[in-house]
Structures are given as structure tokens and as C-alpha cells.
Design a protein around this nucleic acid. Structure first.
Lengths: 336, 336
DNA sequence: CTGTTAGCGCATTCAG
DNA sequence: CTGAATGCGCTAACAG
């Protein structure tokens, strides 16, 4: 029932080599024979064996997608964009999720699971440490980073610094001066990752507006809602002079919104809140944010990968645009 | 640099057959030689070639995950659960997303992309039509359905009817009588899929409470927020007597909440809203809902698949529990 | 433009 | 318990 290449060859009256060439649309096959081969293949319901093809050619036509989560907005959107772009080109996406184990840090990146099964690796929103980068490099296949990547590597990102300035310009333009920053920290957030870059934008924007930077207004976090909510609750209690909060992700902005609600602070009358992402749910809660197209970045990364696979040179850094989405969580500061 | 099995055999002073057996922990290898082989393999950094192994054995150690979307809560959560469970057992997850093209129905399920590259297929939240089922069956590998599956197939689901009754009991218990149902319809929603089953629960609960079923209170939808919001806006305008809405998914409940807000209806004072899912964001908007554990269902489906692969008999229907999460969007009906 | 010939790296008989 | 031999199905030289 599973026809093999020589069945097709026999049916078409040619050699297996010709079948192989015809089916892959390689040059050097006459139109007439190609047509006969295609016909025979269709008739037999022939589907080439990926394993045999990989074994013989050394290429798997499969790209590994390395991501710590897939249900977070950014990671899910990027992964979806990747999968579609790859499939359109006949490539498969192999999923490798490396969720952080509780307290124990992220699962070790096992070099063996990826060895010899992918032609390339796409790393989604995951700042790899030096060891992990070495493991990946040891695979000997191209790697593209989405969302965040070490300097000097092929990356697809937004302009993190610019996105932060955009958010801050909006807040400062409304008249806010005491603006808290909710960010993400930890040893796995190096200075080339979004949290650091966005904080840089935050500080630069303050400086340009002539507002002194107050480090006690920088709230650490882990990109997640719950932590932001907790930490924000405390800030709201201890620092009533804060009139606006800039969270570096929408999910953390959601936590800020919850904390404000818990504390009985009206948004935006008492407190303005802005995020970054353009999360699916941001319009549900009417969050003002700086939107990015994560699926498009995934698709772009996939395209870059395919380009690298064919030996084409690619630009090191692809930077995607962001857009200020003014909604209902920002307004002028309360008159004091 | 990429050691092959005969390098290991040479280093350990045994044959490749013994290496193969030792590394796969097959019986019939003495402890001493197994240890020597493991040692040699580690020393050489040997990783078996998946292609060669598949070609020789006919098994790919890869499971295809068929899903229309991965960023929707249910599908993303299930997929994440699947991936983790599979990886723990040394299996790979190959992603096949088949997003509905605009207006043109879902992408055709291409039989060829899956042929000979997976040992089994997991279908996530996707009621396949008869043609598609045939395509899948033509693959000759086991199939497990999560969230919804044709009768007589191996499925992992919740008790859809029971979940609906649970939601309705809550609403009815609060005193509501005019309760709208926001559901999902269309030819791709057969009578064994959640929308039909949940509607059955809705109707049964009404009947038991002695409330006449009013078909004009059933709002069609497509599981998405936007549509629910639009259709709900109209209902709110034309049917002011409705005091509660039961949406069969949290995402649609979010749309209902937006419509209520747009219409100036207070929740829950003027209108109660309940959903099904326990979506990540449901607590953000304080939605009362019937929660399910989607990731666990994914993991369970993966385990079932592995069981089927080893020839074990499996139960046809695994039903997972749900739980009523009473939050802030439900309350007694307004006194009229 | 097409056919012949070797492998790709492993799993699996079958002997011993 | 272990080894030798065979072939999984295809691609990639190399000839013609």
C-alpha cells in the first residue's frame, strides 16, 4: 500500500534517479518524462519517505522551534507564524518547549534531542546563556533568534529601545512625571535582552524630559501577571505619588491593572498604565500599549532560516516596527 | 565530528548490533558490555541518526499534532501538554496547524505531508469531517482526538453536557430564567462536537428547572470573541428581558462582557455572564466560568497514544473533570 | 537528458 | 549473550 520510488519508476518506465529528479523539480528532465513520472506517482499515491530522503541527502527539511512556552502570547504567536511560513515552503516544524521548572531554573538544553534531526533552529523569546549557545552551535546548523538574541547573531526583533521611548513619550506627553517601570529581571536576562533595552529607553526618555531617574521606581518581575500584580500592590501602597506605570509587557500590565483595581485606584483617572505587545486580550481590558506583530516576526525568521539554508547571505538584524495603540488606560495625571 | 554507530562499536570492541541493543536497553546484553558501550557512546558524543533509525525500523518516534490554531487558549494549552508528555518519553512533536483561511473554509488536510513521517496523530480541538477522517485513517497510524472527536474513536474530552449543566445550575440557582446561550455553529460543528453537546446540557437544565426553551435566545458564533461581541450587542438591544448569558467558551464570554460594557449594562447587576474553559485571562476580568485543565488533557492524550503504539488496548473515551469557578460576573438577576 | 552504482546509518533477522 | 549480513528508500555522483 505504500508505494516506493521504484514502483513509480517501473510504472513510468524510467529509473529511480529520474523519478527523484522529476518529483523534486530538478532541472535536466524533459517535460514529457516529468509528466509521465508525476502521473505515475499520483496514480500510485506515492509519498516519498522523509527518513530515506534525509538519510541519503543529509537534510531533514525540518526546523526545530525552541521555546520556553507556547501558551504565552508572544511565543504562541511567533510559533504560529513560523509554522505557517515553514509549511508553505514544505518544511516541518519540530517543537521543543523548555519550560522553566519551578525554582530549578530552565530545563537543561539537551544537545542530543536536536542532534541530526533538524536543518536549523529557531529560538523564540529566550535569552540563551553562553553554555546553551555553545550547545546550539555544536549542532552545526544555522540558528535564528526571535525576540531576543545575543549580539552578532541573526535576530528578528523590534526596536526595544524605541518601543519604550514611544510608550514613555505618550505618558510624558500627557503630563506624567512619576512613572514606575515594571520590568523583568534575573540572571537569565542579559543586557542585550528586551528588559535591559526597554529600561534604557525608559531612562533615556526621562532624561530627555528632564525628569530625574529614580531607581526605586523600577519594579522587577518575570514577565508574568501574578508577580507584577503583587509587586505593584506594594508600590501603590508605599509610593502614592506615582501617577503612571509602564510595564514592558502587556501581561505584566494586566497584573498592574489588577493591582490598581484591588487598591481601589481608578484607571486612568488615578493611575495610567501602558504596556508593550498588543496582546490579544489588551483590547478586552482597553489597555493602551505599544503593539508589535509577533506572528509576522516568526514568519520572517522562518524565511531568513530558509535563506540561510540555501546559502544566501542574510542581514544580521531584522527590526520590525511597533505602533502606539492609545486606548483607555492612559490619561492625564490627577491634579494634585 | 558526528560519530556513527560503528565508531561506537569499534571503541567498545563490539559489533554495531550490540551497540544498537545496548543503547536501546533491550534485553540480551550483559551488564558489562552495556556499560562499555554506554561509556564509549558518551565518550564519542554519539547521537543516533533519527533518519537512519526510522528508515531501518519503520518507526519515527514522532507524533503529528494537528491543530487549527496554536494561540487560542485551549489549543495552545493542549499542545503544550502534549509536547511535554511526548518529550518525557523521548518522542518528538511535529506541528501541523491548519488555520481556517478567510471564508474559504479550513485548509485542506493534505494527506501527503503526514505520510510516513509520524507514528501517530493527535487532533486538537478540531471536529474533522468524514473526508478528513478518511485521509487520516489512510495514514495507517493511530489517531487520538482531544476536545472533540467522532463517536467510536479514541478521545479525550470533558463532559460537555455536564459542564453546561453546571453552568446553568449556577445561573438558575441565582434566580435567572431568561438565559441566552452563546454557542458555535456551522457545518463543521457536527452533533458530536462540544457546541451541540453543551447546548443539549443547556436545554436539559432549562427543562429541569421548568423554563421553556426559547430558540431565539440561542446566539450562533464561531468560538471567537469578536463575533460574540457583535451578536451580543444586538441581543442586548432587542431582548432586554435577558438577565444572564451562558457562553460555551470563555473567549466568547469575553466578547459578551465587551458588548455589555458597550451597551452600558453593568455586570453582574444588570447582566450575569458565565463561560467554559478557565482561560488564563478569565480571572483578569473576573469571569465566572466552568474550568477545565486543557494541558492535562493534552498530556493524557499523548500517554494514550504511546500506549496504543505499544499495542496496549486503551479505553475509547477519557473524560476529564470540570470545576465551577464562581467569580464576579454572576449574581442574582435585577429585580424588575 | 537519462540510467547505473554506491552508499547514507541504523535495526533486524539469523547464526553461532 | 553476541556478531555478520541484509536491506529500509532514497539521493548523488558518475557515466553514457
Amino acid at each position: 500500500m505504500n508505494a516506493a520510488i521504484d514502483d513509480v519508476a517501473r510504472a513510468a518506465g524510467v529509473s529511480t534517479a529520474t523519478v527523484s529528479r522529476a518529483l523534486r523539480h530538478l532541472p535536466g528532465v524533459s517535460e514529457a518524462t516529468r509528466a509521465r513520472v508525476l502521473e505515475a506517482a499520483r496514480g500510485l499515491g506515492y509519498a516519498p519517505s522523509a527518513s530515506a530522503s534525509s538519510l541519503a541527502s543529509g537534510r531533514t527539511h525540518t526546523i526545530g522551534v525552541l521555546t520556553p512556552w507556547i501558551r504565552r502570547w508572544f511565543h504562541g504567536s511567533v510559533t504560529e507564524g513560523i509554522e505557517r511560513a515553514l509549511r508553505a515552503e514544505g518544511f516541518d516544524a519540530l517543537l521543543y518547549s523548555f519550560e522553566r521548572a519551578d525554582g530549578a531554573g530552565r530545563n537543561r538544553l539537551d544537545p542530543f534531542v536536536l542532534r541530526r534531526r533538524v536543518d536549523g533552529v529557531l529560538v523564540v523569546g529566550m535569552p540563551l546563556d553562553t553554555d546553551e549557545q555553545e550547545v546550539l552551535d555544536g549542532l552545526g546548523v544555522p540558528v535564528v533568534f526571535i525576540g531576543t538574541g545575543p549580539p552578532g547573531r541573526v535576530t528578528v526583533t523590534i526596536d526595544d529601545d524605541g518601543a519604550a521611548r514611544l510608550a514613555m513619550a505618550h505618558l510624558l506627553g500627557l503630563g506624567h512625571r512619576r512613572i514606575a517601570l515594571v520590568t523583568a529581571t534575573g540572571e537569565d536576562q542579559p543586557d542585550w535582552a528586551p528588559p535591559a533595552l526597554r529600561q534604557r529607553g525608559y531612562e533615556a526618555a526621562l532624561a530627555e524630559a528632564g525628569v530625574a531617574f529614580d531607581p526605586t521606581l523600577v519594579i522587577p518581575g518575570d514577565y508574568a501577571r501574578a508577580g507584577a500584580r503583587e509587586r505593584m500592590a506594594e508600590l501603590l501602597r508605599t509610593r502614592p505619588e506615582v501617577t503612571a506605570v509602564f510595564a514592558i509587557s502587556d501581561d505584566m500590565a494586566f497584573g498592574v491593572l489588577q493591582a490598581a483595581r484591588d487598591a481601589g485606584r481608578r484607571v486612568p483617572e488615578d493611575l495610567s498604565v501602558i504596556g508593550i505587545d498588543g496582546h490579544d486580550m489588551s483590547d478586552l481590558v482597553n489597555l493602551t500599549t505599544v503593539g508589535q506583530d509577533a506572528a509576522e516576526q516568526g514568519a520572517a525568521a522562518a524565511a531568513l532560516m530558509l535563506e540561510m539554508l540555501t546559502g544566501g547571505p542574510v542581514a544580521e538584524e531584522a527590526v520590525y516596527p511597533v505602533e502606539l495603540l492609545v486606548r483607555g488606560t492612559t490619561g492625564p495625571p490627577p491634579r494634585s
